[in-house]
Amino acid sequence: MRSSVATLFVALLLLCAQFSFSAVTKKKFSMDGSTASAETVESIASSERVKSKAPSDSVVQDNQSVVSIHDSHIFCLTENFADQQKKLRENIAAKITAMKNGESGIIWTFLLICFLYGMLHALGPGHGKSIVVGYFLARKGKWKHGIALGAGITFTHTLSAVILLFVLYGILKAAVFPSFELGRQGIEKVSYGLVCFTGLLLIGIAVHDLVKLLRSRHIGENKAGEVAVSKNTSWKELIGVAAVTGIVPCPAVALIVLFCLLNSMVALALASAGAVCVGMTVTNMLFGIAAVALKKGIDKGAAKTGWLAAYIHIVASFAGGLVVFLAGLFMLC
């Protein structure tokens, strides 16, 4: 009995000693050096990790006068999309594993998840939406052109990823992904450079139209406008823009395809790439349609201004070219 009490006493002393000399403390303090707001959240002995989460809401709540640019609703929305993508990708991995284990009945659910993932993924920056909008500001297009450019960019973006991955997988097998990333980064730089060049070309066309307009004024302002303003976009031009913008292989597609290949599921790899591609296409096509609608709206409004219409068209073309150029430049930097 006595020995038990002594042991307990010694244990208590040791425990007290440990906390008295605790070197690491989880506590609130002021970053300017004052200790006025100090409030212990959790105290632990040195070399021990904190086991439980502290009530982080109880710590410093002041010093919030500077509003971050990221507090905007648009940015919060983007963050939400990113979180949803994380969940969807976890789901994709789980479904592939399940199918590998024989649950082939979930294939349609899997493809639907891939489709949704593609739709959300394309909402992030870097999928050519600003280029689609800039292009159709600069060039007159029909509805089918808007749909085609949106679809063309994502189709190229997916196809380049699948081709590059399959080629590298054929050579390097499982060791493929770091090489894929190296290849992608190289292609990315060339593509962004070409996007900048496309922007400059569109600006050049706008300047050319302006020069033509100013030189043709002697035949009357309205007629000069008709002479000066460049014609509608062409399929050849659209294919060029889609190729330049979409040629960067999509790492998201490549990772899902590779995960399937590592699980020896080649057909599923292609099916998943197709479903993600269709999802991304829907998003980009909507932007293409919106861009054409915007341009049609501008042209309709401009037509009411008479002789000013040609100038409005040229300003819109210049702005569109600038948008494309800056989009390329931001991605390049």
């Binding site: 070197a23 690491v24 403390t25 904190v50 410093v60 010093n63 006068s65 500077v66 971050s68 963050e79």
Partner: peptide, 30 residues
């Protein structure tokens, strides 16, 4: 769930919080 590890010779305090108000950290997501 992050923390600190230090020998007894040092006095270390820490807490976790948002980056609001730190202009050097404005580039990070909110």
């Amino acid at each position: 769930n992050s923390d600190a590890k230090a020998p007894d010779a040092l006095e270390v305090e820490y807490y976790d919080d948002s980056l609001d108000g730190l202009t050097m950290m404005k580039s990070f997501r909110s």
